[in-house]
């Protein structure tokens, strides 16, 4: 189940930024993914909320600027991943 969540998260990011899922490493961020601009970040927020049934706070919207940070914020919402 948790494995599945991780996979799903990578898939959402890959789709939003139109890259191969292998590109979504723990370090994935606007620095490593060219398409991760402010406009696509908005779509990322919306897609994550839609797919995982959470609602980010205004601070979190700005914070989740790397794959690692997304997982940390998700944990605060009770979405668990494999460590």
């Amino acid at each position: 189940m948790m494995q599945h969540q991780e996979q799903k998260l990578k898939e959402v990011l890959a789709r939003i930024f139109n890259v191969q899922p292998e590109m979504i490493t723990d370090d994935a961020s606007p620095d490593t993914i060219e398409n991760w601009d402010s406009l696509r970040h908005m779509n990322l927020v919306l897609a994550l909320e839609e797919e995982f049934g959470v609602e980010f706070t205004d601070d979190q919207v700005v914070e989740i600027l790397s794959y690692k940070l997304i997982k940390i914020v998700f944990k605060e919402h009770g979405v668990e991943f494999v460590q």
Binding site: E11, R15, I16, N18, N43, A47, E50, E51
Partner: peptide, 11 residues
């Protein structure tokens, strides 16, 4: 249809 699925089709 979710945004993520739409983008999958678009990509």
């Amino acid at each position: 249809t979710g945004l993520s699925d739409m983008l999958a089709l678009i990509n």
